[in-house]
């Protein structure tokens, strides 16, 4: 179980507002995730032996050659809201820069 304060702190970092019922629910659910992490912690692994998704034969580097992506309009069009070729988001963080 996480404390109510811990859940509220995580919610704040994720810019989420939760109802009281949701807070109670996440105290339990996030608590289970943390319990599982503790299980992983009990394994004795060498430092830095984290699991990677990078395939072994993936290129380590690319050469510095600029290429224009052909379908950039599609990327903007993929956004829920756009305006003058820019992504449009609700201003929720106006006070922070």
């Amino acid at each position: 179980m996480l404390t109510r304060q811990e859940v509220l702190k995580i919610a704040q970092l994720a810019r989420l507002s939760l109802t009281d019922a949701e807070v109670a629910e996440y105290q339990k659910r996030l608590g289970r995730v943390i319990e599982y992490m503790k299980d992983l912690d009990s394994l004795s692994l060498p430092k830095g032996a984290f699991v990677r998704h990078v395939p072994l034969d993936a290129p380590r580097f690319r050469e510095d050659e600029a290429r224009q992506w052909p379908d950039r309009e599609a990327i903007v069009a993929n956004a829920p809201l756009a305006e003058e070729n820019q992504f449009l988001l609700p201003t929720v963080l106006e006070k922070e820069t």
Partner: peptide
């Protein structure tokens, strides 16, 4: 990524996945 690194281009013209 391979997008050009340039200053002052039109918005979202130097983007990729």
């Amino acid at each position: 990524c391979s997008c050009p690194n340039v200053f002052g281009a039109e918005p979202n013209t130097k983007i990729c996945p």
